[in-house]
């Protein structure tokens, strides 16, 4: 079936089977491989993107459910020359090591800062409950998000 969606501000149309996942539309059909798949039970959050402005796990959204939607992925928030503040903070605070969870972590972190008020250490940690990182122990991820939250 044909699906039309806005991806990172660009209108895109793909022709996919009904049982295609949004994450595969992004990775396979559109070549946006920054969104990763780290599990098959919707736990790890590596596939987190924004769907109509909300953080969701793209491995648990069917392509037809995203028909007509606005999708924002890690590729759409900044470039190496013009980083999103969250991307810059992750680099500054050494909030990533292998980088595999990072795109999902950043997309959730942006949602958290945009929608959360009074983000202290505990609130940030709680806000990351849908994202697993095996490298950093989260310490520097929390610092990075805190720095963005504090900067307003």
């Amino acid at each position: 079936m044909k699906i039309t969606l806005q991806v990172n501000g660009e209108p895109r149309e793909v022709d996919v089977a009904e049982n295609t996942l949004l994450v595969d539309v992004l990775r396979v059909n559109l070549g946006l491989t920054g969104t990763h798949v780290g599990c098959d039970t919707s736990q790890c959050g590596a596939c987190t993107v924004h769907l109509d402005g909300r953080a969701v796990k793209a491995c648990t959204v069917l392509a037809p459910q995203a028909d007509g939607a606005n999708v924002l992925t890690i590729e759409g928030i900044g470039t190496p020359d013009e980083l999103h503040p969250m991307q810059a903070a992750f680099r500054e605070c050494h909030a990533l090591q292998c980088g595999f969870c990072t795109p999902g972590m950043i997309m959730q972190a942006i949602d958290l800062v945009e929608n959360g008020d009074q983000l202290d250490n505990a609130a940030i940690r709680e806000g990351l409950e849908g994202n697993l990182c095996r490298c950093t122990g989260y310490h520097n991820i929390v610092r990075a998000i805190q720095s963005v939250a504090d900067a307003g």
């Binding site: 919707s42 953080a55 969701v56 796990k57 849908g130 994202n131």
Partner: peptide, 9 residues
Amino acid sequence: IGDNQVRNR
């Protein structure tokens, strides 16, 4: 319930 991403869906 679940986590933020799950609560959004």
